[in-house]
Amino acid sequence: MTENLYELALEGELVAQCGGNLDSEAESCVSVAPLTGVADAFALGDTKPEGAGLQVRYTGTELDTFAVQWARSRGLTL
């Protein structure tokens, strides 16, 4: 992919995907939204106040590869 993912607009708003810290006031959430103009690319953001407005952007392949490798490194089964 030759497109700069940071130049693309979000398709809608970032939607929080939460998990962990469920009993805490500081819920651990990651926000995610697809990007427009390219198939299979996403923006991820941090919902905590310190990370407000910050994003990282990945192709679907990059994000999938990260998720699989992360799960393996933690001894999780997919």
Rank of each mutant, 00 (worst) to 15 (best):
M1Q: 05
E3N: 00
E3T: 10
E3R: 05
N4C: 12
N4F: 01
N4M: 05
Y6G: 12
A9M: 12
E11D: 15
G12F: 07
E13N: 09
E13L: 05
L14I: 13
L14A: 10
V15Q: 14
V15P: 05
A16I: 01
C18H: 04
C18L: 06
G19V: 02
L22C: 10
D23C: 09
D23V: 04
D23Y: 04
S24N: 09
E27L: 15
C29V: 06
C29T: 11
V30S: 06
V30H: 07
V30M: 15
V30F: 07
S31Q: 10
S31L: 14
V32E: 10
L35N: 03
T36Y: 06
V38R: 13
D40S: 08
D40M: 02
D40F: 08
A41I: 09
F42W: 15
F42I: 14
L44M: 03
L44G: 01
D46M: 06
D46I: 07
E50R: 15
G51S: 08
A52V: 12
Q55T: 15
Q55H: 09
R57E: 12
Y58D: 08
Y58C: 11
G60Y: 00
E62P: 09
E62V: 00
E62Y: 03
E62T: 06
L63F: 02
L63P: 04
D64T: 11
A67Q: 00
V68I: 02
V68T: 04
V68M: 05
W70A: 13
R72C: 06
S73D: 12
R74V: 12
R74K: 15
G75D: 07
G75P: 03
T77E: 07
